Simulated assay, not measured.
Amino acid sequence: MYIEYIAMELPRKLIGSLSQFWKINVLDIKQLYDSVEKLVFVSISLEKRKTDVVRSRYNSTMRVPKALNPRLQKQLLLRFGVYETVYPVETTPSRTVPDHIEKPEYVLQKQPTVLPDKAEVKDVNQLRGMRRSCKLAANILAHVQKNIYPGITTDDIDGMVHKLTVEAGAYPSPLHYKGFPKSVCTSVNNVAVHGIPDLRPLRDGDIINVDITVSLITVITLCWHQYVNSLQNNAIKTCGPEVPFSEIGASIFRHSKRNGLTVLPAFIGHGIGRYFHGPPDIYHTLNRYRGRMRPGMTFTIEPVLSHGSKHTLILPDGWTVVTEDGARSAQAEHTVLVTEDGAEILTK
């Protein structure tokens, strides 16, 4: 079922209540409440596919999200420019990894690593492995940054990352993780996270997030980089022994609000080490997550910011997440180690 509607000034709480109507088998609703004059249902259909809805929202190019009035729209245009909304296009087959490189358990279909039930304090050997893999991810990212230019495709970037990773004797962790077909995530403009590299050439003015994740001797690390680094660095400065995990989100929320940006709350950081994702959960907005940091803990901080709405959509490929209103987004990610006197960025 899908619903198309016009709601220029509809309160968010009322939009949230729409879900109760999705369970009702009806063909046409003209109004939700008489008091809401600006809500008009165009159609409700059980036959329409999700793909049609997504394409209808992303069939325009060179656009900025609609604002509430022309003055605000002009401000958005001056601040963020004109850009193309991105939708997945054709791509190439998955790349292969040499047999001599150790594969993670999700590729070998072995019994998955048992996750700890709380944030893990790593020993000296584990931290040594974390530093090696984080350094490799940072070096690959530095190489990629120097070789991104208009005309290159995100599939070319995938090939570059794949080659550098396997040459270092590591495994590109996104490849075949829960079915992901590529060796890196590339998210352009309105794609918030988990973009699948394809044959679309990058254009002058595009914003691209490159998610590099490597597995080196069973230690996994992640490394992202984007212009939201100042916000992220402020959050990292709050880290240290006995600091509540929730303080990270509070710092990011305050900083983004001061700069007129929106945190996309659907995406959180996480513990990392022998496993891809584990405790603790690192929220990037106001939250009440329990627990405090201890020396030896490692986790990612990876806020996603947008200049539009906080709402996102998952495309039919099951991976690509785009902003609902077509607004551009940017993300930065680092793997952080809590130390005795603060925090160390391992992926720097």
Rank of each mutant, 00 (worst) to 15 (best):
R95S: 09
A119K: 10
V114D: 10
K118H: 08
L136A: 12
L315V: 11
L115C: 09
Y177F: 12
I44P: 04
I268Q: 11
I236P: 05
L78N: 13
S56P: 02
S173M: 12
A332C: 13
P98F: 06
I148E: 09
G269H: 05
L136Q: 04
M293I: 07
L32D: 02
V304H: 05
V210T: 12
K48L: 11
P88L: 08
L27K: 14
S43C: 03
Y289E: 12
I301N: 07
A142P: 00
G179D: 09
E105Y: 12
G291W: 06
G151M: 09
T323D: 05
P181L: 03
T213W: 08
T298C: 15
R200G: 11
K135H: 12
G129D: 12
D123L: 08
I314H: 01
F21A: 01
K118N: 02
A138G: 08
H284V: 03
V54R: 01
D325Q: 00
R55C: 03
H307S: 11
E102N: 06
L141W: 08
E90A: 13
P174E: 06
V228K: 05
G151A: 05
V214M: 01
Y58F: 13
Y171I: 06
G81T: 07
R131I: 04
K122W: 13
S230K: 12
L32P: 04
E4R: 14
Q232K: 09
Y83N: 10
N234G: 14
I44A: 02
M62A: 12
S183E: 10
R274K: 15
I140C: 06
L313E: 01
N147Y: 08
Y149F: 14
T238V: 10
P11E: 06
E242A: 13
T218Y: 01
M1Q: 02
A119W: 05
R63T: 07
K48N: 03
H277Y: 15
I196W: 00
R132D: 11
G195P: 04
H100I: 07
P279F: 05
Y5E: 01
L164Y: 01
L305M: 02
H100M: 04
A343N: 07
I24R: 02
D204M: 15
M160W: 08
K257M: 00
P244Y: 06
L32F: 12
K13F: 11
S306G: 04
D204L: 15
L346E: 09
K30R: 15
L346Q: 13
V121E: 06
L313W: 10
L136K: 07
S183A: 13
L27E: 14
T213Y: 14
V228N: 11
N233K: 15
I314W: 11
F21Y: 01
F41Y: 09
A67V: 00
R131C: 02
K257N: 04
K23M: 00
S45Y: 00
H284Q: 02
N190L: 01
G271L: 06
I101Q: 06
E302F: 04
P244F: 07
P65C: 06
V144Q: 06
F276C: 08
Y2P: 00
I207G: 14
Y283W: 04
A119G: 10
Y275F: 10
F245T: 01
G291Y: 05
R49A: 04
T262M: 04
T221F: 03
